[in-house]
Simulated assay, not measured.
Amino acid sequence: MTDPASIDPAEKPANLSNPRRAFIKKTGKKLVRKIAGFQSAQSKVPDTPKLDNAHFPWLSEFTDNWEAIRKEAQAVLAFRDDIPAFHELSPDQYRLSTAKNWKTYILYGFGQRMETNTQLTPVTADILSRVPHIQTAMFSILAPGYHIPAHKGVTKGILRSHLGLIIPKDREQCRIRVDDTITAWKEGEIFVFDDTYEHEVWNETDEERVILLFDFDRPMKLPGRVLNKTFLQIMKFTAFYQDPKKNLASAEEKMEAAIRQADANIEAMSDPADT
């Protein structure tokens, strides 16, 4: 299994070497560091690597319905070959996602529900619609033996949640480190963390791991909310937003075709004229 940390720089997608893109990325990182302190001061919840679920009482709807959500994830896995790898949607993630080792089935992208993909996940999509200020949601599918190297998220204005759905039997070997806290996923359990703290993932088992991953706005005071909204709006004018947006549209078209074909196959098998 390839460790992303060992990727040859020559494998970097050519469009990511654009000098203008590199300048925007470098400038953006400086801006993010400058505003992080303000976002922390504006936060209504602790600025810690992991956060207590008690701060988000609406999470209980996920744990109450996790088996229904898992059933929908299993339905999605029937289209495994049509689910894109993370870096196929977001090319900037090429160091974290290699080959088909980390697949992502997107349900919400940039605050918008993916209408085609959620055809297969009505229960999950309905629950996600009640997450306050949801940004992104996906079924995150990690291959056996894969390691996602240490990295940090973009902004403190967003928090991330993981709900365990399909977890290897040896679950202690399938885990995430956020700062100095290590958590092994468990089916039906959910937790929230701040992905601007360094984090990495291991699946040191011979089984696949599937979770529901979703991002939502950090609860903040009014000035913090205004800054967060402005920052996210600015991001929409960059390639870091535009590239994934285009790739998401293409992935949805491919999935829609796969769903139509599957429906046609089922209809053909059930047609009395064919028996």
Score class of each variant (00 low, 15 high):
1 M>E: 02
1 M>P: 01
10 A>S: 14
10 A>G: 03
11 E>G: 07
13 P>Q: 01
17 S>F: 01
25 K>W: 01
29 K>F: 00
30 K>W: 03
31 L>S: 11
33 R>H: 05
38 F>N: 07
38 F>Q: 06
41 A>C: 03
44 K>V: 04
45 V>C: 06
48 T>K: 14
60 S>H: 13
62 F>H: 11
65 N>K: 14
65 N>I: 06
70 R>V: 03
72 E>C: 03
74 Q>N: 13
80 R>M: 05
83 I>E: 05
89 L>W: 05
90 S>K: 14
91 P>L: 15
92 D>Y: 14
92 D>Q: 12
94 Y>V: 13
96 L>Q: 15
97 S>D: 13
97 S>A: 15
98 T>S: 11
100 K>S: 08
100 K>M: 02
100 K>V: 04
116 T>G: 13
118 T>V: 14
121 T>P: 08
121 T>E: 02
127 I>N: 00
128 L>E: 09
128 L>C: 08
129 S>R: 10
129 S>Y: 08
133 H>M: 06
134 I>N: 13
138 M>F: 10
141 I>F: 02
141 I>T: 09
143 A>I: 03
144 P>C: 05
146 Y>F: 15
147 H>L: 08
148 I>K: 11
150 A>D: 11
153 G>L: 01
158 I>D: 01
158 I>W: 05
159 L>R: 11
160 R>Y: 02
163 L>C: 09
164 G>A: 07
164 G>C: 07
169 K>S: 06
171 R>D: 09
173 Q>Y: 02
173 Q>T: 11
174 C>H: 03
176 I>G: 12
176 I>Y: 01
177 R>T: 03
180 D>I: 02
181 T>N: 02
189 E>G: 04
192 V>I: 12
193 F>S: 09
197 Y>R: 03
201 V>D: 10
202 W>L: 02
202 W>Y: 14
204 E>P: 07
204 E>Y: 06
206 D>Q: 15
208 E>Y: 10
208 E>A: 04
209 R>I: 04
212 L>I: 05
217 D>Q: 15
220 M>S: 12
222 L>I: 06
223 P>N: 08
225 R>V: 08
227 L>Y: 02
227 L>E: 02
228 N>E: 06
230 T>G: 15
232 L>I: 00
232 L>G: 01
233 Q>Y: 05
238 T>Y: 04
239 A>T: 05
243 D>S: 06
246 K>I: 06
248 L>F: 10
249 A>G: 02
252 E>H: 12
253 E>H: 11
253 E>T: 01
254 K>C: 07
255 M>W: 13
255 M>H: 11
256 E>N: 09
257 A>T: 08
257 A>Q: 14
268 A>K: 14
271 D>P: 03
272 P>T: 07
274 D>E: 04
275 T>G: 13
